[in-house]
């Protein structure tokens, strides 16, 4: 009848493609199982690209050494005293900087068409995001752990001990989670991972450096001190110092959680809408 009939007639004579035997789908997995698979992907990426760890921790390590030994004596009397002040701050800085990578990762996946495949699968539609989050937490935990380790070697002592450190890291994860939405939004809006990086750091730099991370704001000009005192990064840093030092108040933690909560409430719907529209 037509060319197709000829092709179809060939079916019986062609070598039976047993290797392409039909495979039926297993029972549908749960949303949690889907999310865990994406988490596993984040772990695999760490194993295959350990260099990314270098990107994550080199800058904060250099900052720690530079500020502690070069500026520390002048800023706080002795390097040791300064480290005690600075270490929680550099952890906050690290987590915020590293959040940029979730936007970069998202943008890279979108560019490669990888998300097209994920989105054409019958899975929980938000599972890929859960995976990004797992990757982020892993990244924050590893980078934070390395920096804290170096701090301990240099003589940093968290007065609140292990419980304080654990509580502090939990706060850091929440902060990373909240800030991550900003970069996922950017990652969905711009088309190249490089642009996400540039946008990200432009937004982050003033917030991180005009804060109480590296110095006490009392010596700053009044207008800057006013900004530093309302900067959410300062609130987060203050709360983390309190948690590590055992002097934290509920008010400090409340203020620190304000920005991550607001960002999540505001941007999570935006990110999901942008993702579904893509």
């Amino acid at each position: 009848m037509n060319d197709m009939a000829l092709d179809r007639a060939g079916v019986t004579v062609a070598p039976a493609p047993g290797r392409l035997a039909r495979v039926e789908r297993p029972p549908r997995p749960s949303a949690l199982s889907n999310a865990l698979v994406f988490g596993w992907r984040a772990v695999l990426k760490f194993r295959h690209v350990p260099e990314q760890l270098f990107d994550l921790v080199m800058t904060p390590i250099m900052f720690t050494l530079l500020f502690t030994f070069v500026f520390g004596g002048a800023l706080a009397g002795s390097p040791r005293e300064y480290l005690q002040f600075f270490l929680p701050g550099i952890l906050v800085q690290t987590v915020i900087f590293n959040s940029v990578y979730s936007g970069v990762g998202l943008c890279t996946d979108l560019q490669k068409g990888l998300f097209d495949r994920f989105r054409s699968l019958p899975i929980w539609s938000l599972a890929p995001f859960a995976g990004l989050m797992v990757g982020d937490i892993l990244r924050h935990a590893i980078a934070g752990g390395i920096i804290l380790g170096i701090g301990l070697l240099l003589g940093y002592r968290p007065e609140a001990g292990v419980p304080g450190v654990v509580a502090g890291f939990l706060l850091l994860f929440v902060v990373g989670f909240g800030v991550g939405w900003v970069f996922m939004t950017i990652g969905l809006l711009v088309s190249t991972p490089m642009t996400v990086m540039t946008f990200g750091f432009t937004f982050i730099f003033p917030l991180v450096f005009a804060s109480n991370i590296s110095v006490n704001p009392e010596t700053m000009p009044g207008w800057l001190e006013a900004f530093v005192n309302v900067n959410p990064v300062s609130h987060i840093t203050t709360a983390l110092r309190g948690l590590f030092g055992g002097t934290v108040t509920a008010g400090q933690v409340g203020l620190a959680l304000l920005a991550p909560a607001a960002l999540t409430l505001l941007l999570a719907p935006v990110v999901l809408a942008l993702y579904r529209r893509k």
Binding site: R41, K45, K112, G113, D116
Partner: peptide
């Protein structure tokens, strides 16, 4: 359905 897009939809690092 299954979709194979125009650009390789694979994770290059894996």
């Amino acid at each position: 359905i299954s979709m194979t897009g125009q650009f390789a939809s694979l994770d290059e690092d894996l």
